[in-house]
């Protein structure tokens, strides 16, 4: 199992949810995982129904079998000061830099540097060991930027190492890239069974591969349950027996009179036609995903929305599908 698992996906596919469920799934039997947020949205806190996360690793959940999930919302500015202190003992310089506006510059104006800090902090957590020489976390899960930006985000250190050809930043950037491009890292992509997210997933995988970043799994999120079987679909769409359906509805106690039951038939068949169209589209998208030749997982749509219980349900599903 890779120790750094990066979760990306098109906006709206639920990558934060999947990252959180994955962290829970991986934190089993006494293992510790760290769930890292890099986009300052506080999505993790909302999912786990806790107050906003500070820039501090804090336990947010207990997994089945006594495992633990910690969470960290990385703040670029604090990470920079942290980093100056940790590597250069430049605590004082950090304050001076802040006064000068250099911290602002580094974390917002020069956006590449921001990504360096975020990836750097995550890799630091991956490599960190406690006094006994054991890794501080068995696994770090990153809720990463969306597919369109993730390659650039993860690869930023390559760019930086190319810009700063010598010096500590160069070395640091190289060290981060060594983690990110090793088998220690896997980048997972979350998608839906819809055209645009699937297209973006395919493009994203090509980009990641071209950049030499290890692609892990494809996780299809919010898969709807099959409500009509093939036989029913065939019957319902190929010149549906309207009168028989009306009779059947009325026999089931709907409408009372045939007229009322008959009025239901067309709208119900319309919904079935929509379902069938969607179903066919999903099947074609599913086969496109299968062609990617990557481990493929499906998570069900939680019809009541994702709450804490739902998160555990998804984690159990991921474990069952063998991701941990």
């Amino acid at each position: 199992m890779s120790r750094l698992q990066v979760v990306s996906g098109k906006g709206g596919t639920g990558k934060t949810t999947v990252a959180a469920a994955l962290a829970l799934a991986l934190a089993t039997e006494g293992k510790r995982t760290l769930l890292v947020e890099v986009e300052g949205r506080q999505g993790i806190a909302q999912l786990f129904e806790t107050e906003a996360l500070p820039y501090e690793e804090r336990k947010i959940a207990v997994a089945p079998g006594g495992g633990e999930v910690y969470a960290l919302a990385i703040d670029a500015e604090l990470a920079l000061l942290d980093y100056l202190q940790m590597f250069y003992k430049l605590g004082g310089a950090g304050r001076a830099l802040k006064k000068l506006g250099a911290v602002d510059f580094a974390t917002t104006i020069a956006p590449g540097l921001r990504d360096v800090l975020l990836t750097g902090k995550a890799c630091e957590a991956v490599r960190r060991k406690d006094r006994s020489g054991r890794f501080a976390y068995d696994c770090v899960i990153m809720d990463a930027p969306p597919t369109g930006r993730v390659t650039r985000f993860l690869n930023v250190n390559d760019e930086v190492a190319g810009l700063a050809k010598i010096g500590p930043i160069h070395n640091q950037a190289q060290a981060v890239m060594r983690v990110l491009k090793s088998p220690e890292t896997q980048v997972h992509l979350v998608t839906l069974l819809e055209e645009m997210p699937v297209q973006e997933t395919t493009d994203g995988i090509a980009e990641l591969r071209a950049a030499g970043l290890p692609v892990g799994r494809v996780i299809v999120n919010m898969v709807r349950p099959a409500l009509l079987d093939e036989a029913a679909l065939d019957l319902g769409l190929g010149g549906a027996p309207r009168t028989a359906i009306a009779a059947s509805l009325s026999a089931a106690g709907l409408g009372g009179s045939r007229g009322a039951a008959a009025r239901l038939v067309d709208p119900l068949l319309d919904q079935a036609a929509e379902y069938a169209e969607r179903h066919a589209l999903e099947a074609s998208q599913r086969s496109l995903l299968a062609d990617l030749d990557l481990p493929l997982h499906e998570l069900p749509l939680l019809s009541e929305g994702v709450d804490l219980a739902g998160l555990y349900e998804l984690a159990a599903e991921l474990r069952q599908q063998g991701v941990s």
């Binding site: 409500l227 089931a252 919904q271 079935a272």
Partner: peptide
């Protein structure tokens, strides 16, 4: 069966 499916849908 179809009708039941339509109703569940």
């Amino acid at each position: 069966r179809l009708t039941a499916g339509l109703l569940r849908l």
